[in-house]
Simulated assay, not measured.
Amino acid sequence: MAGAIGVFGYEVPLSVVLVLVALVIGLLLAVSLYVTISWSVYRSVVDDRRDRVEDGLREEMLEGLFADDPDWEAWVEGRSGTELTVAESLLDEFLRELDGGDRAQLQGLGVALGIPDRARRQLDAGDEFERLDALTWLTLLGDPEPYLAADFVPETPRERAATVTLLSETDRLEGAREGVSILLDGVDGQFTVFGQDTLYRVSRSNPTPLLETAAAAYRTWNEPLLAQVLAVCAQLETSVGDQDLSWLTAALETENEAIRAASARALGSFGWRETVRDRAFLERAIADPSPRVRGAVYEMLGAWGDQSALSILLYALVSETHPRAMERGTAALVDRRDRIDPETPAVLGGAWDWSLEHAEYNDLARRGTRVYS
């Protein structure tokens, strides 16, 4: 039969099939519309309830904040589910904004709301989102005990960072070594910006554990994680003793140009060490085929700032042809203009003039001086 489709041994006219398909699609659209409208109505009702109680609860919580001894247990008793939900939301807001005694005054409300007990359950049996929620609340409440009592061991980079933050904020972190261990031992994946910042805060006063861990494990890290650790090292700017920095020089000779550039920036912080100033190594670095890496190496030499480093930098700039690398190099040299020969500007020509103008403008801007009328 022309214009028919075989279904279970029967010939069904195509027009009938199309009508049935249209009916099914129409029914699905109707159901979708009904669900969407129903959900919107439900959310509107919930939001209206929340709005009606929020102002009153906010005022009561602020009164408790300034009371001598607020009885939060009595305050919570008899509250509706909507009120408790709104109170928890407001508590989250307040705890993120307050500190000191004001924050401690409100932390008791979190206990009355049962948040620490819930956090313990989430750490033992929740998914990653619930575990992160638990760690965040425990940090806000300044209460590490549910974490310490749980069987939870942080695994993902986000969990590791949240755990270190909790222990650090509650003075339960046993120094930089424990923090670095939690963050990096056996880590699989890269950190969020929050995790990278956590690694920096743990290491800034004592970089030794981070440098020792990196020297031992950097070959096992994926490139994004290695780049993050190098970025942290570049910001530390603290003195180091006899730690092994050969992993940094090795990273400067890898195939990935982003890693090489990040390594040069990190060496800018630790470059006073004679062990990283091998002449042959530096000659290879300034001859890197990537303008991005050469620019980072020039900034590294400028950060070192001694006569030997500045001489190598000037030598490299004389033959530099890439505009961006040239600009980064001359800017680094301008920052050290008090240490170079007065004839240097003539050698570099217009690139020096451009960088000097920008440096002077930035100096004026930082001092708050009006730089144009």
Rank of each mutant, 00 (worst) to 15 (best):
A4Y: 09
F8E: 15
G9A: 00
V12P: 01
V17G: 01
V17A: 06
A22F: 07
V24Q: 08
V31P: 00
Y34H: 04
T36K: 11
V41W: 07
Y42F: 10
R43N: 09
E59Y: 05
E63Q: 12
L65P: 06
A67L: 06
E73I: 12
E73F: 10
W75G: 00
G100I: 05
A112P: 04
Q122N: 09
L123D: 04
D127I: 07
A134R: 08
V153S: 10
R158Q: 15
E159D: 03
T163Y: 01
V164S: 01
E169Q: 11
I182A: 01
D188E: 14
Q190T: 15
F194V: 09
V202I: 11
R204D: 12
N206A: 12
A216L: 15
W221G: 08
P224R: 13
L226D: 02
L226Y: 08
Q228Y: 07
C233N: 03
S239I: 07
S239Q: 08
A250T: 12
N256M: 06
S263G: 15
S269L: 14
R273M: 12
R277D: 15
E283R: 13
V293S: 10
G302T: 09
Q307L: 06
L310I: 05
S319Q: 13
R328N: 08
G329M: 09
E343P: 03
T344L: 06
P345M: 03
P345L: 05
A346R: 14
G349W: 13
W352Y: 14
L356I: 02
E357I: 01
H358Q: 13
L364T: 01
A365G: 02
A365Y: 06
R366N: 05
G368A: 03
T369L: 11
T369P: 00
Y372I: 03
